[in-house]
């Protein structure tokens, strides 16, 4: 594989910052848990060891056990699968929907832009968590419904970002050149404009992983996200919140897993933004 100088420079800029590197390692660790869960989890996450209920961290159970005697470490490892795939699905949905709307609004301008942006305003008028809760309470628990609820409430960030960027690019020479060569609108949007917007989109997609992970955890914690039989971090906090006084580990470690994962995406996203788009650097 040939890596051009520009990519090399970006990579160098990216990993020069130690915080970005920490973020990258946290994401890699998470990905490792997602891919190799059956190999690295010491126990079956659903296996109950009733005599060992609420055992403190020890050699047998590194992070202790929960109310049902299930190994917390194994549940955290398997729980990463839910968080990661959910985050990816929601980001993919938001990307597809938000980018298409944002591109159209920015490129066409005028009434199309005005209508699409008012539509975005309508969705932004709802607090995301409450809107997602309302959808979940109507649709019921389950992975598909959580993805639907979070995509419906989360696409606006992509739409606004892409619209603003497209608006600034639509008058540029390369767009005019494509127009004068007779390129059709879809071709201009997706072959000419979109590739020029990739840097901010990649940054938004990376940082955008954090919100669905946090929101899913909140929904499941409240009992309206993932079903209780599926190991998820929010669900773990929900099961043991009444016993935190006697079993501090049962709420500490799952929460830490959420925080570290989200921190990883935030740190790496920050670094990516600085490396890919220096003009956005804060």
């Amino acid at each position: 594989m040939i890596i051009d100088d520009n990519t090399k420079r970006t990579m160098r800029r990216l990993f020069r910052n130690p915080l970005t590197l920490i973020g990258f390692i946290l994401i890699l660790a998470n990905l490792g848990m997602v891919l190799f869960a059956p190999l690295i989890a010491p126990y079956n996450p659903e296996e109950m060891h009733l005599p060992d209920r609420h055992t403190a961290p020890c050699a047998k159970y590194l992070l202790g056990t929960d109310f049902y005697g299930r190994d917390i470490l194994s549940r955290i490892i398997y729980g990463s699968r839910i968080s990661f795939t959910l985050g990816l699905s929601v980001v993919a949905g938001g990307l597809l929907f938000g980018t298409t709307l944002g591109l159209s609004a920015g490129y066409f301008g005028g009434r199309t832009d005005s209508f699409l942006m008012r539509l975005t305003d309508v969705f932004l008028a709802f607090p995301q968590l409450v809107f997602a809760m309302a959808i979940m309470s109507v649709r019921g628990q389950g992975f598909g419904n959580v993805v639907f609820a979070l995509t419906v409430t989360g696409w606006t960030a992509f739409a606004r970002l892409v619209r603003a960027e497209a608006l600034s690019l639509r008058g540029r020479e390369f767009v005019q050149a494509a127009q004068s060569l007779g390129a059709g609108t879809p071709r201009i949007l997706f072959r000419h404009l979109l590739p020029n917007l990739m840097a901010p989109i990649i940054v938004q997609a990376t940082m955008g992983m954090a919100t669905p992970i946090l929101t899913e955890a909140a929904l499941t914690f409240l009992g309206i996200g993932m079903p209780p039989n599926i190991p998820s971090w929010g669900g773990m906090l929900s099961v043991d919140r009444d016993f935190m006084e006697t079993a501090w580990w049962s709420i500490t470690f799952p929460g830490l897993a959420i925080a570290m994962t989200v921190l990883g995406f935030n740190l790496f996203g920050d670094g990516l933004r600085d490396a890919l788009d220096p003009k956005l650097k804060s």
Binding site: A210, A218, F221, G255, A259, V262, L263
Partner: peptide, 9 residues
């Protein structure tokens, strides 16, 4: 860290 920790946690 503030933006990464779930508020309920």
């Amino acid at each position: 860290l503030g933006v990464s920790m779930p508020s309920f946690w």
